[in-house]
């Protein structure tokens, strides 16, 4: 895909297999990025099991579960959009990608509700209410905001990527014969989903 090839040779060097390898390696680094946080969670949960349980009970597991459903559904629509473009159903693929974006937005809105409820109760890093609590609960919320915050950033990045892919699909540069970029975006979106699948039980369910 070098500039050279594009300009002087007239055919674009394309290696879908290489793109897939590169994408999987990148996803691996993303898992490790969150891995460091999961280690911190494991260490502090081991040190403060009771306080982690207390703090976890204060989270709204209904909103958490709702978000899990939203995100899993968005992964489905994303996967379907790839299947659609491979079957040359351009409009269906675009519709499914837009649906994915809407679901992702729904996830973020729901998340912001959850955060702002906690904020209104005075529970945020460095707040007086939180500092008055035990260190296990401080650490729980420190990790909660860091991990769900980093995850939310990934949701936003994923939305930008899918948005660009939608434009490419409308333009036709992503089509039934050339869709490895959409596939890679899908892989990224599944990773975002996968990380949430672990965050949800760790913060909301294991009590």
């Amino acid at each position: 895909m070098s500039q050279v090839n594009e300009q002087t040779i007239g055919h674009v060097h394309r290696d879908d297999e290489a793109t897939r390898i590169g994408m999987w390696l990148f996803l691996f680094t993303e898992l490790l990025l969150f891995g460091g946080l999961f280690i911190a969670y494991a260490v502090y949960r081991y040190l403060h099991p009771h306080e982690f349980m207390m703090a976890g009970k204060e989270l709204n597991s209904f909103l958490g579960a709702l978000n899990t459903v939203i995100l899993l559904t968005s992964s489905l629509t994303m996967a379907l959009s790839i299947a659609a473009i491979q079957r040359n159903k351009k409009n269906l693929s675009i519709f499914l990608q837009v649906l994915t974006l809407i679901l992702a937005l729904g996830f973020l809105i729901n998340k912001s509700f959850e955060w702002s409820i906690k904020f209104s109760h005075g529970i945020y890093p460095g707040s007086e209410t939180l500092l008055a609590k035990g260190s296990g609960e401080i650490l729980f919320y420190g990790l909660y905001y860091t991990m769900t915050g980093l995850h939310a950033i990934h949701v936003v990045i994923g939305m930008i990527i899918i948005g660009v892919m939608t434009l490419f699909t409308i333009k036709g540069t992503i089509n039934s014969g050339n869709n490895v970029r959409l596939e890679s975006a899908g892989l990224y979106w599944h990773l975002v989903d996968l990380i949430w699948i672990f965050l949800f039980p760790l913060f909301y369910l294991i009590l």
């Binding site: 502090y44 945020y124 890093p125 650490l139 420190g142 905001y145």
Partner: peptide, 19 residues
């Protein structure tokens, strides 16, 4: 995490908050 610690006092590495 150090950036977060500096900006928001999340406590993960701060012994006074249990880190």
């Amino acid at each position: 995490l150090v950036v977060m610690e500096r900006a928001f006092n999340i406590g993960i590495f701060d012994p006074s908050l249990g880190g």
